[in-house]
């Protein structure tokens, strides 16, 4: 939908663009560098093509990375962690034993992301690069302390996932940069996690999403509790103070109450077409309570 000036045209067709399908990362990076702000990476296209039809994005050049073998890595190294390449689909992750066993919170989020058909196209990296506040994989990656591997013709860099999102649909990526993979370190020993997604119907976008990760709840010295949320702020957020809070040697009942207060104070949900601010606040409170009870007691 383009509401340019005095008229609206609801487009059926995509805008015109030039299409590239490079075979190597180097080629892709060179194209990206050449066309800078006028180019867009195409992974699964489940966000990009929708945005293009709606004229929210109108790249002149589209660089399809699905033909680049080196971006299709999915590799687990015992004791180190998991590397997920930029073209690995959500469906591939859902069917991966390591993801389900070691990184359950991420698996739980992917399981609830879109539907079977979409997940066969959509990528995890695409979900993050799209930087929607409602990105379902983001809270899980936040509590898992994932790292984002970035490349450009000038070299590579790695950032913490919590520093990756800048604003609604904005990341820290420079116009000539792209994400090559996501690395998730070995989760804390004995960690359990859940992703609670509040929806209106089956296969909906998150009204609020909450990921929680808990390890060794009964032992204050080794206890780890992390909470991150989607759809409650301009970007997905982790409430870092929660982890600090739970380091204290206090009764769990007390800490949980404080954690709920803390989470509520750190989010700023709004009213939009999907839900009211009040409903989101309710979901943040009761969702956090529910997850803490399930994971701390269980």
């Amino acid at each position: 939908m383009a509401a340019s000036k005095s008229i609206i045209v609801f487009h059926t067709l995509l805008p015109e663009f030039e299409y590239f399908r490079p075979k190597t990362l180097q080629e892709a990076l060179e194209l990206l560098d050449k066309y800078k702000g006028d180019a867009r990476i195409l992974a699964g296209g489940t966000d990009l093509l929708v945005d293009m039809r709606m004229r929210l994005k109108q790249p002149k050049y589209v660089i399809d990375i699905k033909g680049i073998d080196e971006l299709h890595t999915l590799k687990y190294e015992e004791g180190k962690g998991l590397t997920i390449g930029a073209t690995v689909t959500l469906d591939e992750l859902l069917n991966n034993k390591i993801v389900k066993e070691k990184y359950y919170v991420l698996w739980d989020a992917i399981r609830q992301l879109a539907d079977t058909h979409l997940r066969m196209k959509a990528t995890l990296v695409g979900n993050i690069c799209n930087a929607s506040p409602a990105a379902d994989s983001a809270p899980a990656l936040l509590v898992l302390k994932a790292k984002v591997n970035i490349a450009s013709v000038n070299g590579t860099r790695t950032v913490e996932i919590k520093d990756f999102f800048k604003w609604v649909k904005k990341t820290i990526l420079e116009p000539n940069e792209m994400v090559t993979s996501i690395f998730i370190p070995e989760p804390p020993e004995g960690a359990k996690g859940r992703y609670l997604k509040f929806v209106r119907s089956a296969e909906d976008l998150a009204l609020v999403g909450i990921a929680a990760l808990v390890a060794n709840p009964k032992d204050p010295a080794k206890r780890i509790v992390r909470i991150a949320l989607s759809s409650v702020a301009p970007t997905p957020v982790i409430v870092e103070e929660v982890e600090e809070l739970f380091k204290q040697d206090k009764p769990l009942s007390e800490l949980a109450e404080e954690a709920v207060k803390l989470v509520k104070s750190k989010v700023s949900p709004i009213t939009d077409v999907r839900a009211t601010k009040e409903l989101r606040e309710h979901m943040v409170e009761f969702g956090t309570r529910y997850l803490l009870k399930t994971l701390l007691e269980g």
Partner: peptide, 24 residues
């Protein structure tokens, strides 16, 4: 639903809070 529960039966939400209290 939540808006009306808050208005008409706020005690129900109190009950739920109570039920979700973490033990220990």
């Amino acid at each position: 639903i939540i808006e009306e529960v808050k208005k008409q039966r706020p005690e129900l939400l109190e009950k739920v809070r109570e039920a979700l209290k973490v033990k220990g």
